[in-house]
Measured scan of single mutants.
Amino acid sequence: SEHYTFDGEEQAIRFMRDMEAKNLKYELQIHNGKYIIQVD
């Protein structure tokens, strides 16, 4: 699995939509205002 970190919500949402379009599962965590997305 890989981790991707985003500072902004818009970037994170765009990335998650992209993952959904590719049928990839992901998990979102928010730490200290950063959006951390783990992709299986």
Rank of each mutant, 00 (worst) to 15 (best):
K25I: 08
K22V: 06
E9W: 15
Y26F: 11
G33Y: 02
Q29K: 12
Y35T: 02
E27Y: 12
D40P: 12
Y4C: 15
M16L: 09
I13Y: 09
K25S: 10
M19E: 02
E27P: 00
N23G: 15
E2N: 13
E10F: 05
E2M: 14
M19G: 02
L28M: 10
L28N: 01
K25M: 08
Y35F: 11
A12E: 01
E9V: 11
Y35R: 01
K22T: 04
K34A: 05
V39F: 06
H31P: 00
K25G: 08
R14Q: 13
F15Y: 03
F6W: 02
I13A: 08
H3P: 07
E27K: 12
I37E: 00
R17T: 09
Y26A: 11
E27M: 10
E10C: 14
V39H: 03
F6K: 00
E27S: 12
I37L: 05
Q29R: 13
G33E: 04
G33V: 00
Y35Q: 01
E2I: 14
M16S: 01
E10M: 06
Q11T: 07
Y26W: 08
N23A: 07
K22R: 11
K34P: 00
R17C: 14
E27V: 13
G8F: 14
A12P: 00
H31F: 11
K25D: 06
I36R: 04
E2L: 14
D18Y: 12
G8T: 15
E2F: 14
D18A: 12
Y35H: 02
Y26R: 00
S1N: 12
I13E: 10
Y35L: 04
M19A: 08
E9S: 06
S1K: 13
F15G: 02
G8E: 15
V39I: 11
A12N: 01
L24S: 04
K25H: 13
Y26L: 05
H3T: 15
L28K: 02
H31W: 10
R17N: 10
Q29C: 10
H31E: 12
F6T: 01
V39N: 01
M19W: 03
Y26E: 00
K25F: 08
H31Q: 12
D7H: 07
I37C: 03
L24D: 02
Q29S: 11
E2W: 14
I30C: 13
I37H: 00
N23W: 04
S1L: 13
Q38H: 15
M16I: 11
R14C: 15
Y4K: 03
T5W: 12
I37W: 00
D40G: 12
I30K: 04
R14F: 04
I30Y: 10
E27F: 12
Q29D: 08
S1D: 10
K25V: 08
A12M: 05
D18T: 07
G8H: 14
I13K: 11
A21I: 08
K34E: 05
G8S: 15
I30R: 04
F6M: 03
Q11W: 07
K22Q: 11
A12V: 04
L24K: 10
Y35N: 00
D18W: 14
I13F: 09
R17E: 12
T5E: 12
Y4I: 07
N23R: 07
E2T: 14
Q38E: 09
I30Q: 05
M16P: 01
I30S: 03
N23I: 02
R14D: 12
